[in-house]
């Protein structure tokens, strides 16, 4: 009985997910060490920033001692980790509120933007990629590949500004900045999703082209299935693995890329918070923000890997 349970596919899957979650610990330790080290060696004294440039030297020194800034590097790092494990990322140097609270307040907006960006990218990229692949070298295929090339090449910030010019100032369709309604969400998510859409289009096309040459597609046609069923049922599911990989990576890229887009559209997300924090040497917020984005990206990657198993039974068999 026990043997049966340990051999069952569901059990193996859970065990795999558990192991992957354990692996997050070294990953997060690595990320925290990197970001702590960088902030530690960045010029600028937090005590001085807190008290202002003109504060007396004695007061600054007293605060340094109080904050533990005179302790050796590893003592400080250990304290940071120990506090972070309890959910305490320190207090923001500018607002004096806990950094974790500041970040959590901004996190939903960033997730919303990244998720909408990915959604836009998937909804545009996958259908165009499929049609391009089924009509290779057609006018449609050529046009969409040119557009995809433009899409990946166009810088985010430039596209954002151009969209504001066209849709907010000339056409007055959407608000140029701000947060709250669906109308506010459209331009930022299009801006952030364009290059991902282009990448996903190209990946879908090449993956589909690879798959439709396979013998089992010929088998499906030989059964008398219509081309639509052959493509959607037999080809797409096989083509999906590399596409899902790219989508997962794009999501991470969007989390990071959100920094620029959030700045252009005054989007109240983690990215903009971090830009401000870096400018003001608000190191608890920067450290916490990097940790948060890294953790989100790792979890998304794990989800992608779990998704593989549902797409391809051969991969599921390998998860032990």
């Amino acid at each position: 009985m026990l043997w049966y349970i340990t051999q069952s596919k569901v059990y193996r899957m859970h065990r795999y997910i558990f192991r992957r979650l354990l692996l997050l610990i070294p990953v997060m330790l690595g990320v925290s060490f990197l970001v702590f080290t960088i902030m530690f060696f960045t010029p600028g004294d937090p005590a001085k920033i807190l008290l202002g440039e003109r504060a007396p030297e004695a007061e600054v020194q007293a605060l340094r001692t109080q904050m533990g800034l005179d302790d050796p590097f590893f003592v400080q790092y250990g304290r940071f980790i120990f506090n972070a494990l309890r959910g305490d990322l320190g207090r923001s140097l500018t607002t004096r509120r806990p950094a974790a609270l500041e970040l959590f307040a901004r996190f939903p907006a960033t997730m919303q933007l990244a998720a909408m960006g990915v959604l836009v990218a998937v909804l545009i990229g996958i259908p165009i990629g499929i049609v391009s692949a089924t009509r290779q070298y057609s006018v449609f295929d050529g046009a969409s590949m040119v557009l995809a090339l433009i899409g990946v090449s166009m810088p985010n910030f430039w596209q954002g500004i151009m969209m504001v010019l066209l849709f907010s100032i000339v056409l007055r369709w959407f608000p140029s900045s701000g947060y709250g309604t669906f109308a506010h969400l459209i331009m930022p998510s299009l801006t952030i999703g364009t290059s991902s859409a282009a990448t996903i289009t190209r990946m879908t096309r090449s993956s589909m082209l690879e798959v439709v040459r396979q013998d089992y597609i010929r088998t499906a046609r030989a059964k008398g299935l219509s081309e639509r069923v052959v493509i959607t049922r037999h080809a797409l599911k096989n083509a999906l693995i590399p596409i899902v990989t790219v989508i997962g990576l794009q999501f991470g890229y969007l989390l990071g890329g959100a920094v620029l887009t959030e700045t252009i559209f005054s989007w109240p997300g983690v990215g903009r918070l971090m830009v401000d924090a870096i400018r003001q040497r608000d190191y608890p917020v920067v450290q916490g923000g990097v940790l948060m984005l890294a953790l989100t990206f790792s979890v998304v990657n794990l989800l992608v890997d779990v998704l593989y198993a549902y797409i391809d039974p051969r991969i599921k068999a390998q998860y032990k």
Partner: peptide, 24 residues
């Protein structure tokens, strides 16, 4: 033709390792 394929004429392929769909 589709109505004939797989119905009145069907085919067995050379390589069984590649002619079945791996995800179904």
């Amino acid at each position: 033709i589709r109505n004939v394929r797989g119905n009145r004429i069907s085919m067995i392929f050379q390589d069984p390792m590649t002619s079945l769909n791996p995800v179904l």
